[in-house]
Design a protein around this nucleic acid. Structure first.
Length: 251
DNA sequence: AATAGTTCCAACCGCCTCTGT
DNA sequence: AACAGAGGCGGTTGGAACTAT
């Protein structure tokens, strides 16, 4: 099958393919709001979308999820990606779980465009890379200011969600989705704080098998990242414990 | 100003694992 | 135990936007 032949936005075997329209996005958001994440193959039937389950899930996970962090990968996130990739290789979803608001697709794309070539590494590239890094940092600074402003809007949204939760319960939805839950949980510091401080806002101690342990600085980052992962598992729509959720770092 | 090269990113595919029957 | 369906993952593609020459 070739898109050159098929073209985009075509209907093949009853399923639409290609770029999503605003209307399709709206239908999918409404569906998730009512039914929660999962059961993606029901979307076509229940939401009237002519998209297959995989396409719907992908669209939601990579683009529509409200807890996604928009904007450029920050230098700090870049460092984390580098370190985690050195440790885990191309396990993008695992890496993504350590970067709240980032998707595996995003990280994968970022890696491909930045580091895959960098590792091949011609010396000439380094100045180009530095230039881009500088630009990104400038952009990042602008983003931080923007996010400061947007934080107020976010708080308003959280209030709206609190209003929605009882309504969802009323509807007896099995697993209601709380779009702002992860965001609000992280936001005991603001996203800006998180970026500025890296992940140092995480506890300087970590809980292992129920007991609190002191950790050294090297371990701090990793344990903190791992805790974030746990947080996401607990609050991000209560996914079932799968192999991927339970995968242990450093093994 | 035009063109070539690069980056970004949305979306697809095939494969694998998990879960329910 | 075997099978089918659903979900998740990593790899890949292609077009748009941006940058360098």
């Amino acid at each position: 099958m070739s898109w050159g032949v098929m073209g985009w936005g075509v209907i093949e075997e009853g399923w639409r393919k290609g770029p999503w329209t605003a209307e399709e996005d709206r239908l999918l958001i409404d569906y998730v709001r009512l039914h929660g994440e999962g059961r993606w193959n029901s979307v076509a039937r229940l939401a009237g979308l002519k998209r297959n389950g995989k396409s719907c899930r992908l669209r939601w996970v990579n683009y529509l999820r409200p807890d996604l962090k928009r904007g450029q990968i920050t230098p700090h996130e870049e460092n984390i990606i580098l370190e985690l990739h050195a440790r885990w290789g191309n396990r993008w979803s695992t890496i993504a779980r350590s970067l709240p608001g980032r998707t595996d697709n995003e990280i994968k794309n970022y890696w491909r465009t930045h580091f895959k070539k960098k590792t091949k590494g011609s010396p000439d590239n380094s100045s180009k890379v530095n230039k881009r890094m500088l630009k990104r940092q400038q952009f990042h600074h602008q983003q931080q200011q923007l996010q400061h402003q947007q934080q107020h809007c976010l708080q308003d949204n959280q209030v709206e969600m609190k209003k929605m939760v009882p309504l969802l319960d009323e509807n007896e939805q099995k697993v209601p989705y709380f779009p702002q839950m992860t965001t609000s949980f992280y936001s005991h510091t603001t996203p800006v704080d998180q970026q500025e401080q890296g992940f140092n806002y995480l506890n300087p101690t970590t809980v292992v098998n129920g007991s609190v342990c002191e950790v050294n600085n090297d371990d701090l980052l990793w344990d903190g990242l791992w805790n974030l992962d746990d947080v996401h598992v607990n609050f991000g729509g209560a996914p079932k414990p799968t192999f991927h959720n339970l995968v242990t770092p450093f093994c």
